[in-house]
């Protein structure tokens, strides 16, 4: 209970900041996924001649649930890299927080709660607009909000742990380029994973994005079986748990007085 309350204070701090600065992130968090949906779903979709690969559904509807997940994973990446480093080094927010009775673990929980709420809110807005554009195949796309948040967190938590060990932001670009970018393109959001060469597929199975997309798309099209659903969810939850475990450890090490 105590932990929850203290973590909530951390969350509030973020909210106060956001209320003053939301405009700065509006383009990257809300507008850009929408533009992608319109450009690829409608624009590219209009050129699509064969939908045999994706089971005959319109490309826009095929894309929408997966794009929710991809957007969440991308958002999570930015929130878990520069933002974390800044709170340690540039703005030193964390340093100030642990000078109060808040513990490093509570700092982590507050941060993760904040990121989760961000991902959730963005996904809700995105899905709402997708429905308005006729990109929803069925009511199941509502579940995509949850799965996107889950997948985002599954990438976020280990990344927070990693960011907590760094003194310089140099390796973030490497992560964006060599992890995030391929994960965006090749985990089944834009075209089925079956198109990829065999050797690449096991690598895809490791990514939270692929699990999230399987869940979100399955829920939208009503093709999701109970066992696969449990399997994908378990994998994502495990990533969150392991990430949190290390994040807490590294935060204690770094913020130890």
């Amino acid at each position: 209970m105590q932990t929850l309350r203290a973590s909530w204070f951390g969350f509030e701090k973020h909210w106060l900041w956001y209320r003053r600065n939301w405009r700065a992130t509006a383009v990257s968090s809300f507008l850009s996924p929408l533009l992608f949906l319109v450009a690829l779903g409608l624009g590219f979709g209009s050129q699509v001649q064969s939908t045999a690969l994706i089971g005959g559904v319109p490309y826009l509807q095929y894309l929408a649930p997966a794009l929710v997940v991809i957007t969440a994973v991308q958002g999570a990446t930015f929130e878990s890299t520069y933002a974390i480093m800044s709170s340690f080094i540039w703005q030193k927010t964390y340093i100030g927080m642990v000078a109060t009775p808040i513990t490093p673990a509570q700092v982590v929980y507050g941060q993760v709660m904040w990121i989760a709420s961000q991902l959730f809110a963005r996904s809700v807005v995105f899905v709402g607009i997708a429905v308005a554009l006729g990109a929803a195949n069925g009511p199941g796309i509502g579940l995509a909000v949850l799965f996107a948040t889950l997948a985002g967190l599954a990438f976020s938590c280990p990344l927070i742990a990693y960011s907590a060990t760094l003194d310089k932001p140099d390796s973030f670009n490497t992560i964006f380029r060599f992890v995030l970018m391929p994960m965006t393109l090749f985990t089944g959001a834009f075209f089925p994973v079956s198109q990829l060469p065999d050797w690449l597929r096991p690598l895809v199975w490791l990514t939270p994005a692929w699990h999230g997309i399987e869940l979100a798309r399955g829920a939208t099209f009503g093709t999701l079986g109970l066992l696969p659903a449990l399997g994908h969810t378990a994998y994502l939850v495990a990533m969150i748990a392991v990430g949190l475990f290390f994040a807490v450890r590294f935060f204690y090490r770094r913020l130890a007085v």
Binding site: V48, L53, N173, T174, Q195
Partner: peptide
Amino acid sequence: WFVLVGGAFEPILFLWSLGLGFGQFVA
């Protein structure tokens, strides 16, 4: 230099995904 080389990586990924994926929908 690693960052410089990395800059070329992205367009290559894009091109690859064009052939593998997008091109399959649009002849």
